[in-house]
Design a protein around this nucleic acid. Structure first.
Length: 208
DNA sequence: TCATTAACACGGG
DNA sequence: CCCGTGTTAATGA
């Protein structure tokens, strides 16, 4: 575990901080598709992602959800940080996209480290910064792009996360992530297949 | 015009 | 049989 910490964070944190993380953090593993944080829940610790990918969803009043962004290894959750600092409830829903390994840091350490370790401060700031950029990208997608463009960037994103051109997902799941109906996804995917961009299989899409 | 909703047929596991 | 998929028709924004 300590080794994984060093692999993912060793270049940006000083050894003393890494050592302390290993001491106070709790190691956690979760399988694919598990709820990690539910909306309304109070957060008691901040997760550092060691491996895998997590998707962050924003629920609406009807119980539908919109995909906001993904977390990948070496990331932490900006929403969780804000929740911890303000001790407010979670505004988002986090689900593991793949099998994940996490290191849970107790909230008390977040502020303590911010004054103690310069690298931790930088890490927190850059987490906010990159998350803000990703959020902007998502807003651009939702506000300015048609569904076919949103679908394309969704698939490209999946390829990056899974590190594979074989995406195991159903049309219904995509529709729910993009907050639209399955009919639209099926039709657009069919169109993309006709344009030789992808190949469709049952419960699985191959990007060419 | 394009998304949504409902409905139906087909086929694979 | 159930689920994922492809398609269509009606309706609405």
């Amino acid at each position: 575990m300590l080794q994984e910490l060093k692999d993912n964070y060793g270049s940006q944190f000083e050894p003393a901080l890494i050592e302390e993380m290993g001491r106070v953090g709790t190691f956690m593993e979760a399988p694919e598709g598990k709820d990690l944080i539910r909306p309304g829940q109070y957060i008691k610790s901040v997760p550092l992602l060691l491996s895998g990918s997590i998707k962050i969803l924003r629920p609406d009043a009807n119980g539908d959800e919109l995909l906001l962004y993904h977390l990948e290894k070496g990331d932490t959750c900006a929403m969780t940080l804000t929740c911890c600092i303000g001790s407010t409830k979670s505004e988002i829903h986090a689900i593991s996209e793949t099998d994940v390994k996490l290191l849970m840091i107790p909230i008390g350490k977040i502020e303590e480290w911010a004054s103690k370790y310069k690298t931790w401060r930088n890490f927190v700031f850059s987490t906010y910064q990159t998350r803000m950029m990703e959020m902007l990208e998502s807003i651009d997608n939702i506000a300015f792009h048609n569904m076919d463009e949103r679908l394309k960037s969704y698939l490209e994103n999946k390829i990056e996360i899974l590190n594979s051109k074989h995406i195991y997902i159903t049309h219904k799941e995509i529709a729910s992530d993009l907050h639209t109906s399955r009919v639209v996804i099926s039709r657009l995917l069919k169109k993309m297949e006709n344009e030789n961009l992808i190949k469709l299989h049952r419960s699985f899409i191959e990007v060419v």
